[in-house]
């Protein structure tokens, strides 16, 4: 049985600048996988390519066995991949609730939409309190939660999350990570990009390490945690 997501030997970049070199990775159904690396390693670029906002110049990406390397981003989203970007891309002039309902844009069944709404509200009760506030006026942490919640609204088969902890107070980071763990327990497959290496490795199953656009290391999170290179380069030990 093929993995849920298979990225095979892709090259990608911006114009003439190639960022990804022969990147391959795999995410099995139900797995919680992380992608680690220094600033500028190409982690965001990898997620963008999977989500369809960049097109690989070589290699292939398969989702549920089907190639999505040339599929437009909105179709990839409709196939069941939700992308929570670093910049969040919220609809700032709309209320929290409207943002969430738009997250369920591809869900046509009203009842399912409301169920999803209840579900994300139970994950982030804060959002329910702020239901009618405009997204643009929320705090940074609330906006992160909203973005993740919006990504969840369509009950995706795969969730791509880019640096959810960036710029958050430690306490809020805990909330966000707990929410991701809950999702995972609900059976959602997640590919998480993070800089916060120790906590990430604690909650994930497997990890990839990326350096200068190439995957240099991969393995179960427990092993990575004890890996000499990872400890020196990313955990400062």
């Amino acid at each position: 049985m093929a993995a849920l997501l298979e990225v095979e030997h892709i090259n990608a970049g911006y114009g003439f600048l190639q960022v990804l070199w022969d990147v391959s990775l795999k995410v099995e159904k139900g797995e919680f996988v992380c992608l680690l690396g220094a600033n500028g390693a190409g982690k965001t670029t990898t997620l963008r390519t999977i989500a369809g906002f960049l097109k690989p110049t070589a290699g292939d990406i398969r989702f549920e066995g089907q190639s999505i390397a040339k599929t437009p981003a909105y179709q990839i989203s409709q196939m069941g991949i939700s992308f929570v970007s670093e910049s969040l891309n919220l609809f700032t002039n709309m209320s929290v609730r409207e943002n969430l309902l738009l997250g369920a844009y591809r869900v046509l069944d009203k009842k399912k939409q409301l169920q999803a709404l209840d579900f994300v509200y139970s994950l982030f009760p804060r959002l329910k309190e702020r239901e009618r506030q405009l997204a643009g006026t929320m705090s940074g942490g609330e906006r992160k939660m909203l973005a993740i919640a919006r990504g969840m609204m369509s009950m995706p088969k795969l969730l791509l999350v880019d640096e959810p902890s960036l710029g958050l107070a430690p306490q809020v980071v805990v909330t966000v990570f707990e929410a991701l763990q809950t999702l995972r327990k609900e059976g959602v497959t997640i590919l998480l990009v993070e800089q916060n290496v120790p906590s990430t490795l604690r909650i994930t199953d497997r990890g990839y390490v990326m350096e200068q656009g190439k995957i240099v290391l991969e393995g179960p999170s427990k092993e990575l945690m004890n890996n000499e290179h990872v400890r020196v380069a990313y955990m400062g030990i």
Partner: peptide
């Protein structure tokens, strides 16, 4: 309406709109 909301979404953030599956 769903479509009307999508129109406003595109007016506010095109990438966000594509991320939730709206065909620009």
């Amino acid at each position: 309406t769903r479509t009307g909301r999508a129109i406003r979404a595109v007016a506010q953030d095109e990438m966000g709109a594509e991320m939730v599956g709206i065909n620009l």
